[in-house]
């Protein structure tokens, strides 16, 4: 009885009624790890238990069942929520510096060191 009451309290507080989200396949886990939970700001969909994230996992599962591949699922979500939803930014004119700048710095640093080092 006590258990029932507490479970009801928890439902009341969570507010929503989550349908059974069945055991997710490994594929769903893999994809949802790479998605940002937009309302939790900072957690991945995989890590989150929010309504948004739970629905997202159901959606991913259904897309996989439809036979969509990873790329298509990411593209579908990007078309809905923008680039922001994926954690792995693709290289385009906006992100080229993000990917290249650390590498440039590494090369620059290597040159500095080479100038300080003699072989003799």
């Amino acid at each position: 009885m006590k258990i029932k009451i507490l479970v009801l309290t928890i439902f009341y507080l969570i507010g929503s009624f989550n349908l059974s989200y069945a055991a997710n396949s490994e594929k769903v886990d893999q994809i949802s790890k790479n998605l940002r939970c937009l309302i939790c700001q900072g957690q991945s969909v995989y890590d989150s238990q929010s309504d948004f994230a739970l629905s997202m996992k159901i959606l991913i599962q259904s897309k996989i069942d439809e036979g969509k591949n990873d790329e298509q699922i990411y593209d579908f979500l990007k078309s809905k929520y923008g680039e922001w939803i994926v954690y792995d930014p693709e290289i385009n004119k906006n992100t080229v510096l993000l990917w290249v700048l650390p590498l440039i710095l590494f090369v620059f640093g290597s040159i500095l060191i080479l100038r300080k080092v003699s072989i003799k």
Partner: peptide, 11 residues
């Protein structure tokens, strides 16, 4: 399941 709302781009 909340899936339709995702179709509409809702959070």
């Amino acid at each position: 399941s909340g899936v339709n709302s995702i179709e509409l781009g809702a959070y």
